[in-house]
């Protein structure tokens, strides 16, 4: 295996295109190094994208927030503005692993690892995030839902890699939240998770709602019916009950070492309600 550390997007693409055998992109390495050690992957080339300036920046313009694919969880958590705009997304990334992991792990890597239980994904879907992809044919931008195809499988074509994640600048009185269930308090993979983004009008009525759940299907799922249940209304027990049921209805989980079908289906509804409540409360507390 050869290790490469290109310093430009162009150089990285060229390495990816010309690599003989299997090439893997390395960002924080907290998944890739584990997979190497466990011999789950045996690539011929490891292409470290951390030395490419575009992957290391956080930039905010009038339309969007762009978080470089190799920005670490710790760096994202320390950024003064992103957390104010999308607290749920930042919290979701912050939940990945220990402090030590946070010093290395990246949102881009979490996304590209394409685990059904990835913490950042439901939050990114709820926030309507996009993936910024560089490749031999230039840059393209696709939704998170379209990017994730199956466990371990993404929409990246040969020669492509993720440069950044883009989040819209949220409308007025919008906030998000992400919650996950793990049996311990830390260091576990999500057994079930839910991310939600809520926009309220001046009367506290919901005008826009997105809800996504993780670890309950091959990829994280957008609960499409959530919008219909929540929009145009106030938060009451009846709507929450409908929401819990709608959430459980989209779940197609498996039994594995981390949880059971019944548990995941039931608790997905619980977490969906809790995430919506938290996002709602945060949106209410905002005057912008």
């Amino acid at each position: 295996m050869d290790y490469h550390a290109p310093e430009s997007i162009h150089a990285a693409i060229s390495l990816l295109v010309n690599a003989e055998g299997d090439a893997r992109v390395l960002a924080g390495g907290t998944d890739v190094l584990v997979q190497l050690r466990e011999e789950m992957i045996e690539p011929n080339h490891l292409i470290d994208i951390k030395n490419i300036a575009e992957t290391r920046n956080i930039s905010i313009c009038a339309k969007e927030v762009r978080v470089g694919a190799a920005v670490t969880g710790a760096e994202l958590g320390e950024h003064p503005k992103v957390k104010a705009l999308w607290p749920g997304v930042v919290e979701a990334v912050g939940l990945i692993g220990s402090h030590q992991i946070q010093s290395r792990a990246t949102m881009g890597g979490n996304l590209c690892n394409a685990s059904p239980a990835a913490d950042s994904v439901p939050a990114l879907i709820a926030a309507d995030g996009k993936v910024v992809i560089a490749g031999p044919n230039g840059e393209r931008k696709i939704s998170i839902e379209d990017f994730l195809i199956a466990p371990g499988k993404t929409a990246l074509a040969i020669g492509e890699f993720v440069v950044a994640l883009a989040l819209p600048i949220p409308p007025t009185r919008t906030a998000d939240a992400y919650l996950r269930f793990i049996p311990r308090t830390e260091m576990d993979i999500a057994v079930v998770s839910a991310g939600s983004a809520i926009t309220l009008d001046e009367d506290g009525k919901c005008t826009h709602a997105r809800l996504a759940v993780g670890a309950v299907a091959p990829t994280a799922r957008l609960v499409k019916s959530a919008s219909g249940i929540l929009v145009d209304g106030l938060l009451d027990d009846d709507r929450l009950e409908q929401l819990a049921q709608a959430t459980s209805a989209v779940c197609e989980p498996i039994d594995d070492k981390r949880g059971t079908v019944a548990f995941r289906t039931q608790v997905a509804g619980v977490l969906a309600c809790r995430a919506v409540k938290l996002a709602w409360q945060r949106a209410m507390e905002r005057d912008i």
């Binding site: 311990r184 830390e186 576990d188 981390r258």
Partner: peptide
């Protein structure tokens, strides 16, 4: 009492061979 256990698949292969899924208490637990 709460979380530690050996978990096998149908072929009796151990599924949780690391500290990630063999859930020993961490400091915050």
């Amino acid at each position: 009492a709460l979380n530690e256990e050996y978990i096998y698949n149908e072929n009796a292969q151990l599924q949780n061979t690391g500290f990630l899924d063999y859930r020993m208490p961490v400091a915050s637990d």
